[in-house]
C-alpha cells in the first residue's frame, strides 16, 4: 500500500505543470462569479446592453440587419488580427460585448491589460499588451472611423493633453472598487453619460456688433463629435425673448452628424477634435435676448425632451 502511495506521489510530482487555465472558459457568466466588482460596473455599461438595447434593435430591424451582430455580440476580439473586424458568435448573445469578447485568448486562456497579473487566479490571466492598445477597440469602434479620427487628432488642445494614451484614458479610467480592488472602470462611459459629453464639447455664445453668435468646440473628445454610429447627432438650437421676456419656441440652427449613405442630400458635419464651429445668427424681429443650447441625440429622430442637453448659453447684447 505504501508503495502504491509512493507511486501515486511520484505520478503527481511528474505530472506536467498545468499551464492551461484551471477550467475551460465557455461563458462570461463564469467570470462574473469571481469578479463581482467588475461585473457590477460592466452591467451598467452599454457593452452589457449591446444586444438587448431596444434602440439598437429598432435601428437594426431587430438584428435582421445582421451586419450589426458582429459588434453587438462579438466573438473574442483577440482571435482576430489587431484592428481587424470581428465576427458574431452563436451563443450568449444576450450578454452583448461580454468578458470573453475582450479577454478571451485564442488558446482558451484569459488576457489582461495588467502587466502584473495574478497568476494564482483560477483563470490564470496573462498580460496581453494589445488590451491597452487602440487596435483592441478598433475592431468594432473603427467601423465608423472613430479610431482613425483619434489617430488624426492633435496631441494637445488649449494647453492640455487631448489624446491621452488611447481609448482607455477617457473610457476606462483607473478605478478603485468598494472592496479596495484597483483596476480599470468597466462602465465604459461615453455618449450615454452627460458628464462624459460635457467633457467633450462645450457651447458658447454672445451678442457682438455683428449680432448674436453661437459656437461649439470639441475640446475634450480626441475624436469627432459626435462619432461612431451614424445614428448619433448633436444639435444647436436657439430661442429668442422679446420685450415681454417670454421665450419663443426652440429653433434648429445646426446639426453635427455623419449621415447614412442613402441620405444623399446630406454631408458629414461631425466636429473634429480640437476644432470650433461658429455661426452668427439672425435674431428674431424684436428680440432683446436669446439663448442657445446643445442637444445630444442617440438617434437622429429622438425627441428634444429625450435628448441630453450638454450645455446652454444666454445671448445678450
Amino acid at each position: 500500500m505504501l508503495a502504491a502511495l509512493g507511486l501515486l506521489v511520484l505520478v503527481l510530482l511528474l505530472r506536467p505543470a498545468r499551464s492551461e487555465p484551471a477550467t475551460s472558459w465557455i461563458s462570461s457568466r463564469q467570470c462574473l462569479e469571481c469578479h463581482p466588482g467588475v461585473a457590477a460596473e460592466w452591467r451598467e455599461s452599454h457593452h452589457a446592453f449591446a444586444y438587448e438595447n431596444p434602440e439598437v434593435r429598432q435601428l437594426s430591424n431587430d438584428f435582421r440587419n445582421e451586419e450589426c451582430l458582429a459588434c453587438h455580440a462579438p466573438r473574442p476580439v483577440l482571435g482576430f488580427a489587431p484592428g481587424e473586424r470581428v465576427l458574431e458568435r452563436a451563443s450568449d448573445r444576450a450578454l452583448g460585448v461580454d468578458c470573453l469578447a475582450c479577454h478571451a485568448l485564442p488558446d482558451a486562456g484569459v488576457a489582461t491589460g495588467n502587466p502584473q497579473p495574478d497568476a494564482s487566479a483560477p483563470c490564470r490571466p496573462r498580460y496581453e499588451p494589445r488590451m491597452r492598445d487602440v487596435s483592441h477597440c478598433a475592431s468594432c469602434h473603427n467601423q465608423h472611423g472613430t479610431v482613425d479620427q483619434w489617430r488624426a487628432a492633435p496631441e494637445e488642445f488649449e494647453g492640455r493633453k487631448l489624446k491621452g494614451d488611447g481609448c482607455l484614458h477617457c473610457h476606462m479610467p483607473d478605478a478603485v472598487r468598494p472592496d479596495g480592488a484597483a483596476g480599470r472602470d468597466h462602465r465604459f462611459r461615453a455618449s450615454h453619460d452627460l458628464a462624459q459629453l460635457q467633457a467633450a464639447a462645450r457651447i458658447e455664445g454672445g451678442w457682438s456688433a455683428e449680432g448674436p453668435w453661437v459656437s461649439v468646440t470639441n475640446f475634450g473628445a480626441a475624436h469627432n463629435f459626435p462619432t461612431d454610429e451614424r445614428s448619433r447627432a448633436a444639435d444647436v438650437q436657439v430661442r429668442w425673448r422679446g420685450a415681454e421676456g417670454e421665450p419663443g419656441p426652440w429653433q434648429h440652427v445646426h446639426r453635427f452628424r455623419d449621415p447614412y449613405r442613402d441620405e444623399v442630400d446630406l454631408t458629414n458635419t461631425q466636429l473634429p477634435a480640437g476644432q470650433t464651429w461658429r455661426r452668427t445668427l439672425a435674431a428674431a424681429p424684436g428680440a432683446r435676448a436669446g439663448e442657445a443650447r446643445l442637444l445630444y441625440r442617440t438617434n437622429p429622430f429622438q425627441a428634444d425632451d429625450e435628448a441630453r442637453e450638454i450645455g446652454r448659453v444666454s445671448l445678450q447684447p
Binding site: A3, A4, L5, L8, V11, R15
Partner: peptide
C-alpha cells in the same frame, strides 16, 4: 495487490489532467 489498489487512484490523478 497494492498496485491494483493504486490503479483507481492513478487513473484519477491522470484524469485530473
Amino acid at each position: 495487490c497494492a498496485a491494483a489498489a493504486a490503479l483507481p487512484l492513478l487513473l484519477l490523478a491522470g484524469a485530473g489532467c
